[in-house]
Design a binder for these strands. Structure first.
Lengths: 145, 145
DNA sequence: CCTTGACTTGAAGTTGACTTCAACTTTTAG
DNA sequence: CTAAAAGTTGAAGTCAACTTCAAGTCAAGG
């Protein structure tokens, strides 16, 4: 497969594939002239990368997981920890979502007057200000799917 | 309150407060010499900003909500939409978390051999690649709480 | 033969939300 | 009074994950 084929099949732009290769996340299996050729396994690797990203891993962390050489060797502790982190994040997000819904539905003319909203703000001030979760990114922002 | 006081009470660094003021998200009520003085209401505003950030709003979006002049005027539709977005995100995150936990616990020697993991990867390839949620940021990354 | 289009490269640019810096002014403690 | 501590400014730097650019290489079709 050439780079365009991989790009088409995965939705990952060619520029990103080159970038990933430079970072050592994927490997091409040779050149056809000067064009990279990719083995089909790269599709799985890219899926794994996407999964990692969705889980909030940095590319470096993902790299560590499939690094040694061939197939993914996975750091189970890290995965567990990340899962915990995600669960904590989910909790906070649920609170935020509820808060937003309340704010959206609240009939009070000014939100200053709404006690629930006040409570929410207070929780935000407490909980959010002190949140230590790292900058987990959710979704790969894809501009040109 | 001077800037240090606000910083201490909210955990938001002074540099960030100045930045927010420059962007029009908060306002100082005057100067004490050349030092800004803040009204206590700024604490609520900062809580609202933190809430918005946790909800994945950009600073511009947050700005729109408390913009007109004084108190927050809230775009209920936007809030609802954001809540929906967050709920969708939660769903995806839950799937990812489960996936991670499985991967962490899976006894298969190579994950290539584990059908559940394969399934997860497939889902990742399908679901994550096509996810269109915008780059919602979860938690304000605070380096020096 | 020569243009077109797909690929190559390294380097530089983008985005959002900040942080850091240098140079300076003020307030405050001793 | 004086020096340190805290505040001020605009400009520039940072970070991650890419994207875009300029300039070049190459295979194939007309």
């Amino acid at each position: 497969m050439d780079i365009a084929e991989v790009a088409k099949r995965t939705g990952v732009p060619a520029s990103t594939l080159r970038y990933y290769e430079k970072r050592g996340l994927i490997h091409s299996v040779g050149r056809d002239g000067l064009r990279r050729r990719f083995a089909p396994g790269v599709l799985d690797q890219l899926a794994l990368i996407a999964l990692g990203q969705a889980a909030g891993l940095s590319l470096d962390e993902v790299h560590a997981m499939l690094s040694p050489d061939g197939e993914p060797n996975i750091d189970r502790q890290l995965l567990s920890a990340k899962a915990d982190e995600i669960d904590a994040l989910i909790k906070r997000l649920r609170a935020v979502s509820n808060g937003l819904r309340h704010a959206a539905a609240c009939p009070a003319p000014s939100h200053a007057a709404c006690p629930s909203f006040q409570k929410l703000l207070k929780a935000a001030a407490q909980g959010i200000f002190n949140t230590q979760a790292e900058p987990t990114r959710k979704a790969p922002r894809r501009t040109r799917a």
